[in-house]
């Protein structure tokens, strides 16, 4: 064999050149290159409790998964449909309260109170957000911001019915820390797969079209309001689901579930990870939750911290971390011998 000149090429180039849609893989390097980023993070998440059994970190990581689900569900609305909600906590709260009332008051068992709580919470949230759909752009964001705050007011005002400031106690909590860790983490992985399926199919294409140009979609004979309502509901099911999980985990639900801090955190996480990427918001959730744990002093100024992160990102990396990492990853090189 004639000795060829050595040349550097991007690792993904050979794969792209050889095949259009089907992967004809040539080397282990390529196989690892392709599936590595897809399977290593979930595997790490699944073995985490085997490596670190400190209940404190299990709790932190469960919390990150909780925000991960909330953020990727937000991304369907804010990222893909252009409905930038500043009130996503509404779904968390409705999900939590629905599950709590079903379980603590009506004795509905936990394996039903959580899924039913998710559905009822999503339904209630969609009903409340529906009138906000009349407004567009920043006005929708403002209207959605107010909705959970109004709910907090409603709960305070109706102490006898909804438990007021004290909230509702006594929901079933039959699981230990490791079990809760797996419940939250598997919920995140499943949510990720389902939401990806939704947004990268025909339905998601219509959502992106609505984000791009609403009148064009109306002129295409598609009922935009109907799609927005369905999207609110789908997004709400996931956020309400983790709200319901959290209510059982804490055996408590209170007005804090509707807290503005949740809504703002979700937006900060999504922006950090990268809006309209689905995986990005989950990444952002892990980063911000772990970061605020490390920087305990910052706990009380979290809002300010998030605001600063948002501003810095919007100026320097508006695409978010995920797209940035993806680009770096795609430039991995290898030596090829030209013959």
């Amino acid at each position: 064999m004639a000795k060829g000149r050595e040349r550097i090429e991007r690792l993904d180039r050979g794969i792209r050149a050889r095949t259009r849609d089907m992967y004809a893989l040539m080397s282990y390097a390529e196989i690892i290159y392709l599936i590595g980023p897809r399977i290593i993070p979930p595997i790490l998440l699944l073995v985490f409790p085997l490596i670190i059994s400190d209940p404190y970190w299990l709790l932190v990581m469960s919390y990150a998964a909780f925000y991960g689900v909330a953020s990727i569900s937000w991304d369907i609305l804010g990222g893909f449909t252009g409905l930038v909600s500043f009130g996503h906590a509404l779904f968390i709260g409705f999900g939590g309260y629905s599950a709590a009332i079903l379980n603590a008051w009506y004795g509905v068992p936990i394996y039903l109170s959580i899924p039913l709580g998710a559905l009822i919470g999503a339904g209630l949230g969609t009903l409340v957000f529906a009138p906000c759909l009349r407004t567009k752009g920043a006005y929708f964001s403002l209207a959605s911001l107010v909705a959970p705050l109004v709910m907090i007011g409603v709960i305070y005002a109706s102490a006898e019915i909804l438990g007021g400031e004290e909230g509702i106690y006594g929901m079933a909590n039959p699981f230990n820390d490791v079990q809760w860790y797996y419940i939250f983490t598997i919920t995140l992985l499943v949510s990720f797969l389902v939401i990806r399926k939704v947004v990268y199919g025909k339905f998601g294409l219509i959502l992106q079209a609505i984000r791009d140009n609403e009148p064009a979609v109306k002129a295409s004979g598609i009922n935009v309001v109907k799609y927005k309502l369905i999207t609110l509901f789908i997004s709400g099911v996931f956020a309400s689901f983790v709200g319901a999980l959290q209510a059982h985990r804490l055996a408590f639900v209170g007005p804090t579930f509707f807290n503005l801090l949740h809504s703002v955190s979700i937006i900060a996480m999504s922006t950090l990870g990268g809006i309209a990427t689905i995986v990005g918001p989950a990444l952002g959730a892990y980063i911000l939750v772990i970061l605020t744990e490390y920087l305990r002093i910052l706990q009380d100024v979290r809002m300010l911290l998030y605001a600063i992160i948002l501003i810095i990102l919007l100026i320097f990396r508006p695409e978010g971390l995920f797209r940035y990492l993806e680009r770096i990853y795609n430039t991995f090189e290898r030596k090829v011998v030209e013959e």
């Binding site: 294409l205 992106q208 079209a209 064009a216 004979g221």
Partner: peptide, 15 residues
């Protein structure tokens, strides 16, 4: 009023 971020072909797929 194109769907400016989407490929041209998807502008026609929507209807």
């Amino acid at each position: 009023r194109p769907l400016h971020k989407l490929p041209t072909i998807f502008n026609i797929v929507i209807p």
